[in-house]
């Protein structure tokens, strides 16, 4: 029972297919509570598909997914909404609502899921904006007026609006300058430690993997090849993993 409780995401026998072609096949996965778990793998290995499948945006052919101890297939509408309050998703390009300002974007989940008074919502919104390192002036801007990096931060602020227990990040540092990316890593790490977040992070950024990930899962051949710490990754014999972590970029990141 205690062990059960320590697992934030448990996926078993996940098969996802598009047009009859399997992208993920009989995939098993455990993400422990409070871990920052990095997902790597060659392009097209299904990292984003796995993320989308867990949060319910893709249909799966087979398999069960338990999030925070609850089987997602067995939830009624209300329970499903409760689970959705307990996770936040940052999409690759931010996926901000283009007709709303940054602040209004962050307020959307707060108004939708809570009945906090307007002034508190606005303050929490300001807080999240500060928390992700956006300048206060960015709040009243529309997404199209922001740079890519700022859009990502705004997307993270929206994902964190409800203080979720699990955060899904799809390539959070892609397209950020190295300083911005390092700051983002630092942000994820410190939010994780102070808020006890579980982080599911799809990334190709080796620096991020070193800096923030407790564990790494490598996707390939339609399933999880291996999971483990960075040190364990470096000892793997699998050719792709060797090339990935021991290649020039892998060495530089160490």
């Amino acid at each position: 029972m205690a062990e059960q409780n320590n697992i934030a995401i448990r996926a078993r026998d996940i098969t996802v297919a598009f047009h009859g072609i399997a992208v993920l096949d009989k995939l098993d996965l455990d993400v422990r509570r409070g871990d920052v778990m990095g997902f790597v793998g060659p392009s097209g290995a299904g990292k984003s598909v796995l993320l989308r499948t867990i949060v319910g945006l893709n249909k799966r052919v087979r398999g069960t997914i338990e999030v925070l101890g609850q089987d997602l297939d067995k939830l009624n509408y209300r329970q499903r909404r409760e689970i959705e309050e307990r996770w936040g998703v940052l999409f690759q390009s931010g996926a901000l609502f283009s007709s709303l300002t940054v602040a209004q974007n962050i307020e959307v989940p707060l108004f939708e899921h809570t009945d906090l008074p307007v002034d508190v919502v606005e303050e929490i919104c300001a807080l999240k904006i500060g928390l992700v390192g956006l300048p206060p002036e960015a709040a009243s801007k529309y997404p199209m007026e922001l740079s890519g990096g700022m859009r990502k931060r705004a997307g993270l602020a929206r994902a964190l609006a409800l203080d979720p227990e699990i955060v899904f990040l799809d390539e959070p540092t892609a397209g950020l300058d190295p300083i911005g990316a390092a700051a983002f890593d630092e942000l994820v790490r410190s939010l994780q430690s102070s808020l006890g977040l579980t982080v599911f992070m799809v990334t190709h950024d080796l620096d991020s993997l070193h800096a923030v990930c407790d564990r790494i899962a490598v996707l390939g051949d339609k399933h999880v090849i291996v999971t483990g710490s960075m040190a364990e990754m470096l000892e793997q014999d699998h050719p792709w993993i060797r090339d990935y972590f021991h290649g020039p970029r892998g060495r530089a990141a160490r």
Partner: peptide
Amino acid sequence: APHADILERLAKIESHVEIEPP
């Protein structure tokens, strides 16, 4: 310690932002 960390972080953040352009 982690709670102090959160409070410390909040203290540094500007608590008022404009929600919409003026």
